[in-house]
Design a protein around this nucleic acid. Structure first.
Length: 283
DNA sequence: AAGTGTGCCAACCGCAGAGAC
DNA sequence: GGTCTCTGCGGTTGGCACACT
């Protein structure tokens, strides 16, 4: 049935990209813009399949990619978005415009998964609950210890994010300035981070954004703290649901997307602390 | 110094969706 | 409507670098 893999073709080079290949690819895209990947190998003379060219561009060469350590804020966003969306790395990456889905996926698999697993073990051994008991109000959260959880998450003993460092210079710097002046750039320049809100609004228009909105409908937004608690884990939700408040709130007017926006794009470090205290689903 | 184990990340693979014909 | 092609996504892996013995 299907067509053979594009990379099975004879003469197609595999493996790590050389700086020369990078420069050829960057030069070509600089001139023609990203897209029409099919024609890239033919037009550039690169002995790579179109897929490999696209991947190299999107994951490594395109301008605006931030490499190196993930900040606690980014880490928190990933953790929470993963809890919210699952392994939808592309969707998660759309909220971290400077990170690639591959980068986020790798970081999750190599750091965060272990970190959360360790935290869960710690929580078990300390006998305090990661979630407030259902049907209880916030004043009686029993063993649930926000600060302990936060401490564990930020503990230097739990795998250090500082180990995650870039080993190679980002060749995309060659393109600095170009994307800015380009009439229709596919991605943004490093200097455009002040337009994050525009990107988010664009994302909201497309399927990924709609997916987030749908996800929000499944979550209970804690408006006091500006954070999102998975519906099934929130005692507030349980309490309100029983009174019919939430059902009406969500069914008739889903939580405004701006809550998620505001929280996700909040550059204030103080928000991170709240995030770290957030109960979440361990997978 | 050499061998082995482990962590990490770039890149590959296979699948699915969308669009063109 | 069916087939083909292109693109994007998520899971997996190869291989390098470093740590440990």
């Amino acid at each position: 049935m299907g067509r053979p893999p594009c990379c099975d073709k004879i003469g197609i080079k595999k493996g790590p990209w050389t700086p020369e290949e990078d420069i050829i690819l960057v030069s070509y895209i600089q001139e023609h813009g990203p897209g029409n990947w099919r024609s890239v190998p033919t037009n550039t003379g690169l002995m790579r399949c179109s897929k490999s060219c696209r991947l190299r561009w999107t994951n490594y060469l395109r301008p605006g990619i931030k490499r190196g350590n993930f900040t606690p804020h980014e880490e928190g966003m990933i953790i929470h978005l993963q809890a919210l969306l699952g392994n939808k790395w592309a969707a998660i990456a759309s909220y971290l415009p400077q990170r690639t889905d591959n980068d986020i996926k790798n970081y999750w698999n190599t750091h965060l998964k272990k970190k959360l697993k360790k935290i869960q073990t710690e929580l078990d051994s300390h006998n305090f609950a990661p979630f407030p008991p259902p049907n209880s109000d916030n004043s009686s959260t029993n063993n649930y210890d926000h600060h302990q959880f936060s401490k564990l998450l930020n503990s230097p003993n739990s795998s250090s994010s500082s180990l995650y460092a870039s080993s190679t210079e980002n060749i995309s710097r060659l393109l600095e300035g170009w994307m800015r002046s380009s009439p229709n750039p596919s991605r943004r320049n490093n200097n455009d981070i002040d337009h994050d809100d525009e990107t988010l609004h664009e994302a909201q228009k497309n399927d990924q954004g709609q997916e987030i909105v749908k996800s929000c409908e499944k979550s209970w937004i804690n408006q006091d703290e500006g954070i999102i608690i998975p519906k099934e884990k929130s005692s507030n939700y349980a309490n309100c649901e029983s009174s019919g408040v939430v059902a009406n709130e969500i069914k008739t007017s889903p939580p405004p997307f701006t809550y998620l926006e505001k929280w996700l794009l909040e550059e204030n470090g103080g928000q991170v602390e709240e995030l770290m205290e957030l109960p979440m689903i361990f997978t």
